[in-house]
Nucleic acid binder design. Structure first.
Lengths: 133, 133
DNA sequence: GTCCATGCAAACGATTTGCATGCGT
DNA sequence: ACGCATGCAAATCGTTTGCATGGAC
């Protein structure tokens, strides 16, 4: 699985144990908010402080290691940076799935007179298992 | 232009002058955050308090009169509820344009095994006039 | 050894709450 | 007249900051 140390060094950040722990928490969860990162990381490093998480989340965003996923009403979640993709958010169970932006989709989203740098697409609804229950 | 009193009554909310002022501020701006609403509304009703805005924003969201537009990094903006649409957000000048979800787009976004209730699509980039400068 | 990162506690700012009064119905 | 809405001030919560110490390079 991903080597968090290299990920940090390649982004010009020192590889501290706090940072690799935060990345691990994000990677394992897929999409996770600050408090959840704190809960997760505290088990491995009980002395890690919330302030450190806040400082590093900002830093890692600036350095392109992670990205913010603003959530309707709730606190933003974070994910490791990867290709642009769509989020499918289940309103019933809360799980978030990723879905690719296919060439077809990309074409459909093209817009005259506006040059797209990146897209942020959240589709809210019901996942398969929640549809069935 | 929209009749804010009816809009409120149809949503089972009392039509107070504070509420119509808030709706007017949102409608005129198109997309606006809490502080901007406050600045705008204070000119018409200097006694209107921030607490009232917060309370009503939550209420009007619950009653489907307005919707939240979560913004990357910044404070959420709000807009009057209307058909699902795409937001084109200029990273240079900050303006937000709306763009329709055409049948073609809708089709491209369809997803197997996920039932979409509503979509939240923000495309970040450069608007025409900022591309030119 | 140097410089940056961490962790604590204090500061700050945004949002929420409780309650007495006012207003829409 | 009734019950909800408002506005103030206080309380609360999330986030940021300053600074002394520790750790990565």
């Amino acid at each position: 699985m991903t080597n968090y140390i290299d990920l940090l060094k390649n982004s010009n950040l020192k590889a501290t144990i706090q940072r690799t722990s935060i990345l691990q928490a994000i990677d394992q969860a897929g999409h996770i908010n600050i408090d959840e990162i704190y809960d997760h990381v505290k088990e491995l490093y009980p002395t890690l402080s919330l302030a450190t998480i806040y400082k590093n989340i900002i830093l890692m965003q600036q350095n392109g290691v992670i990205i913010e996923v603003p959530m309707n009403g709730e606190k933003s979640k974070y994910e490791l940076k990867k290709e642009d993709h769509i989020h499918l958010i289940c309103q019933s169970c809360g799980t978030i799935q990723d879905s690719k932006i296919t060439p077809n989709r990309q074409k459909a989203l093209k817009i005259e007179n506006f040059q797209i740098k990146y897209s942020q697409i959240n589709l809210y609804g019901l996942c398969l298992s929640c549809q069935q229950s």
